[in-house]
Design a protein around this nucleic acid. Structure first.
Length: 229
DNA sequence: AAAGCTGCCAACCGCGCGAAG
DNA sequence: CCTTCGCGCGGTTGGCAGCTT
């Protein structure tokens, strides 16, 4: 339906970024800040689509990225947040400075799920596996790809299954431009989105007053999430 | 030593949303 | 209002590295 592709595909590179491309992108953003991703590649002399540039910057090149292993605290935080938010990786990432949604998503699919399974917890519902055995097949998948397909990806299954937790989320982007790191705002706030302590207007505060009646282990640790602390 | 398998992660894709015109 | 544009998100995939047989 007439949606034009995000970029002219003819003359754009795809796949892994080269060092040169990285440097070009970094240099350009240093000079001009983030934003206007669509026009950035041309301006920066990159044969990439804007989307690709944005992703590369956000997920890999940003100076404030932590990288390295997740700590146990981060693990638990991710689990708690996921129990509240489901697969809202960007929201979860906004609570973990220096971590990106992509990174957390990958980490969830590769490590955390397994960890939860080993604790006997269904990673989608955050309830004991027994209680959700009927709905979610606990396959001991031998392939990671099938694992992520089987267990991971369905957003809706989280929402549907999790009927015990009364989620009151305003996760619409209108209410949560959490990660708005676009040009105008500031180029510092590339800072993983959370640094936005500064100027979160009341309307823009994420209202995650979550009243939750989780049957399982996290309720004691769950506190209302409010991005402006 | 080689082949096959598994795990991981960077990057891509499609779509929804809000803003602008 | 309606349409178009651009951004950002979540899901998925390709390919490499490490491990096992």
């Amino acid at each position: 339906m007439g949606r034009s592709p995000c970029c002219e595909k003819e003359h754009t590179n795809k796949g892994a970024w080269t060092k040169e491309e990285d440097e070009q992108l970094i240099n350009y953003i240093k000079l001009h800040g983030e934003g206007c991703w669509r026009s950035l590649p041309k301006a920066a002399g990159l044969l990439r689509c804007g989307k690709s540039c944005r992703l590369r910057w956000i997920n890999y090149l940003r100076p404030d990225l932590k990288r390295g292993n997740f700590t146990d605290e981060e693990d638990e935080l991710i689990i708690n947040l996921h129990s509240l938010l489901g697969n809202k990786w960007s929201l979860i990432a906004s609570r973990l400075p220096g971590r990106t949604d992509n990174e957390i998503k990958n980490y969830w699919n590769t490590h955390v799920k397994r960890k939860l399974y080993s604790r006997g917890i269904d990673p989608q519902t955050h309830r004991p596996l027994n209680s959700s055995l009927s709905s979610s097949t606990v396959t001991t998948c031998s392939k990671s790809k099938t694992l992520s397909n089987n267990v991971g990806s369905s957003n809706s299954s989280f929402n549907n299954n999790n009927n015990n937790s009364e989620l009151r989320l305003e996760t619409k982007r209108s209410a949560t431009p959490l990660m708005k790191v676009n040009g105008k705002q500031d180029s510092n706030s590339s800072g993983g989105g959370v640094s936005s302590d500064e100027q979160v207007s009341p309307q823009r505060r994420l209202n995650l007053e979550l009243s939750i009646g989780l049957p399982f282990p996290y309720q004691s640790q769950v506190s209302p999430i409010n991005l402006k602390e």
